[in-house]
């Protein structure tokens, strides 16, 4: 089981609650948008402009790079890190749930070389997210960049993302204390050094599932409240970017 813990009724219940909040939040927004009756687009959608804008402005975010390298690095790391981890969790959950456990794919990804890929994937995007969050926290609370006007929503998003990332690494670090992972621990290139650090300061092996649960609960809470939070822009802003590109093409 790659999720490292049993898919218990509690997990399913938590998932359903998260999904209900997520869907309700999305519906609240969409219902409000749909109350607008004027034309959204004045021209036919320009597919090539949309694709170009998606690559350059949504994925690579060159428009932010033009303004500031530091801001670009911060936003790119948070965006790509968050999306990468969301994708990894989704893939893992889908495979755990739908693939027969004795299938070649399941064997490969749960026990074989595939699991190492997922280890590297998780650490890579986790480090990116943490790096981006660090820059964001420094800009907003330490340097106090003038253009940033902090309200509760801004802080909550940063707090949740930081908690998710930190608890994710902690759960991984404590899991890697289990000798069964010793031979492959270095694939978790960020998690394993944390394991060593924790051991060096006196932390012994403990039930890592506690950390996995803390991580899961915080993550689910955040996912459920995305439509009500600042993170909603992660999904809405790209739509505006590509529509603008299409209209101006």
């Amino acid at each position: 089981m790659y999720l490292y813990f049993e898919a218990t009724a509690a997990l399913y219940t938590l998932t359903v609650i998260t999904a209900v909040f997520l869907v309700a939040g999305v519906l609240c927004s969409v219902i409000l948008w749909k109350k607008g009756k004027a034309k959204s687009l004045h021209h036919k959608p320009n597919i090539s402009a949309i694709i170009k804008a998606f690559i350059l402005e949504v994925v690579l975010q060159v428009q932010i790079l033009k303004i500031s390298f530091v801001r670009w690095l911060m936003h790119f790391c948070i965006f790509i890190g968050f999306m990468g981890l969301l994708a990894q969790t989704t893939v893992m959950a889908m495979m755990s749930h739908f693939l027969p456990q004795d299938s070649v794919v399941a064997q490969t990804f749960f026990q074989g070389a595939g699991s190492r890929v997922l280890d590297v994937w998780g650490d890579l995007f986790g480090v990116m997210l943490l790096f981006g969050l660090t820059i964001a926290i420094v800009r907003r609370y330490i340097v106090r960049v003038e253009q940033l006007e902090t309200i509760l929503k801004d802080s909550l998003s940063l707090i949740f993302l930081t908690l998710i990332t930190v608890t994710g690494f902690l759960s991984e670090a404590f899991r890697l204390m289990d000798p069964q992972y010793a031979s492959v621990a270095w694939y978790s290139f960020a998690g394993y050094p944390l394991t060593q650090l924790l051991q060096a300061i006196g932390f012994g092996a403990m039930n890592y599932k506690v950390w996995v649960w803390i991580h899961t609960i915080i993550s689910m809470f955040f996912l459920g409240f995305i439509p009500f939070s600042k993170a909603w822009h992660v999904f809405v802003s790209p739509i505006e970017i590509v529509l603008d590109a299409s209209e101006r093409a």
């Binding site: 009756k37 801001r71 309200i151 802003s237 739509i239």
Partner: peptide, 24 residues
């Protein structure tokens, strides 16, 4: 009169990231 807006314009209110670049 919300009907005067397009769905896109109402969505734009959610799309603002509050980055404050405009204030500069």
């Amino acid at each position: 009169n919300i009907e005067k807006f397009s769905p896109r314009q109402l969505m734009e209110l959610d799309a603002c990231t509050r980055c404050g670049e405009c204030s500069n």
